Amino acid sequence: MNKFLIFISLLFSPVLYASSLSSCSLNGVNLYGKVKVVEHFATFKVKVVRNFADLKFKEVAHFADKCGEWQFVNNFEDFSIQYVDAFEDFSIMKVDNFPGID
Rank of each mutant, 00 (worst) to 15 (best):
F63V: 02
K34T: 03
F98M: 14
I8D: 08
L5H: 03
F63W: 07
F7A: 14
F52D: 09
A64P: 09
V84W: 06
V37A: 08
V29Q: 09
S9R: 03
F98T: 11
V29T: 14
I8W: 12
S19F: 08
Y83E: 10
N97R: 15
V84K: 10
F87I: 03
V73G: 02
F76Q: 04
Y17M: 13
P99G: 11
N27I: 00
S91L: 07
S91K: 07
A64M: 06
A61L: 06
V35E: 05
V49K: 04
L31R: 08
E77D: 01
A64E: 05
P14T: 10
F87A: 04
E77V: 00
V95Y: 15
L16W: 15
V48A: 09
M93L: 15
K47Y: 03
S13G: 12
K45G: 00
Q82Y: 13
F63Y: 11
F87R: 10
D89V: 02
A61P: 05
W70F: 15
S23A: 13
S80L: 11
A42N: 07
V46H: 07
D89C: 10
W70Q: 00
F72N: 01
D102E: 15
G100A: 06
A64I: 02
F72I: 05
V29P: 08
G33C: 01
E77W: 01
A42C: 14
F12C: 04
V84N: 04
I81D: 05
F98L: 15
G28M: 08
S80G: 10
V46R: 03
Y32G: 06
V29E: 07
I81F: 08
I92T: 03
N2F: 15
I6D: 04
D89N: 15
K45S: 07
I92Y: 13
V49Q: 05
R50M: 04
K34F: 05
H62M: 06
S91G: 03
D85T: 12
V29M: 07
A53R: 11
E59K: 11
S19D: 08
Y83M: 12
S20E: 12
E59N: 09
D78N: 14
N75V: 07
E59R: 11
F57G: 00
K47L: 06
I8T: 04
V35G: 01
H62S: 09
K94P: 09
V46C: 09
E77C: 04
A42R: 08
A53W: 13
A64G: 01
I8R: 05
V46K: 03
G33S: 00
L5P: 03
